[in-house]
């Protein structure tokens, strides 16, 4: 915002105050609350009917019920998150299942290079497999020690903390493997196809 007026001295002080400045991507500011953003109403999915499906370019699709999903190996994640609307929140605490764990249950077609996450409410977002694997993405169902609240994407949301948070699709219900990185809901209307906050990839062509 008014970055050009920030003196070197002030930046220096901020760095010393816990070194948090080094964790805030360019153009972002820190928040302590957890803003709720949404492109539509909050869906309410009955857990008895909730499923999570991996399909598309896999040898055989796989689908879990809510109960089955709870039996998958779980991990705790502490991550900094950055929203393209310019807030960054440090040390968010999640519990969920890594995408690597989910993909152990399918055999990927060699043509698969990307995925589209689909959600209750119709939201979609795209990810390259190289941004989804190796511990970079997970499906979270707990936040800060409690079941993930519906307004934050509960019962389960995708979390991809190294990309802008629109990639961390709320109310996620499945991942479809595809042979082309095709834009999702926001990527198809002016937002960057990948969205790396450290490169300020906010809009198409950034």
């Amino acid at each position: 915002m008014s970055q050009k007026f920030v003196s070197r001295g002030f930046t220096g002080k901020r760095e010393r105050a816990g070194g948090q400045g080094a964790r805030v991507p360019p153009g972002q500011h820190l928040v302590s609350d957890f803003p709720v953003l949404s492109a539509g109403p909050t869906p309410r999915t009955d857990l008895a009917r909730w499923t999570f499906t991996i399909d598309g370019l896999v040898t055989a699709p796989v689908s879990w019920s809510w109960a089955d999903f709870q039996h998958l190996p779980v991990q705790d994640f502490v991550k900094d998150i950055s929203c393209v609307t310019k807030w960054t929140k440090l040390d968010t605490r999640w519990r969920g299942v890594s995408v690597d764990t989910l993909f152990e249950h399918v055999e990927l077609d060699p043509r698969a290079v990307a995925l589209i996450a689909s959600c209750d409410g119709g939201y979609t977002t795209n990810l390259l497999l190289s941004d989804a694997l190796n511990g970079q993405a997970f499906v979270a169902y707990e936040y800060d020690g409690k079941p993930l609240a519906p307004e934050h994407g509960g019962p389960a949301r995708l979390v991809v903390p190294h990309l802008y948070f629109w990639k961390s699709a709320k109310w996620v219900r499945g991942l479809r493997l595809v042979n082309k990185d095709a834009p999702g809901f926001w990527e198809s209307l002016g937002y960057h196809i990948r969205g790396d906050p450290w490169k300020e990839q906010r809009y198409t062509d950034d």
Binding site: L37, S38, A39, G40, P41, V84, L189, G190, Y203
Partner: peptide, 30 residues
Amino acid sequence: AYTRAPGVVLRCPACGGVIARIVQTPRGTL
């Protein structure tokens, strides 16, 4: 109207379907 989002989304009050999306970027409006 959903405005607390990366863009503005207008939805049908009857079916909830997306009728319009508007995004303003530094380079223009989509």
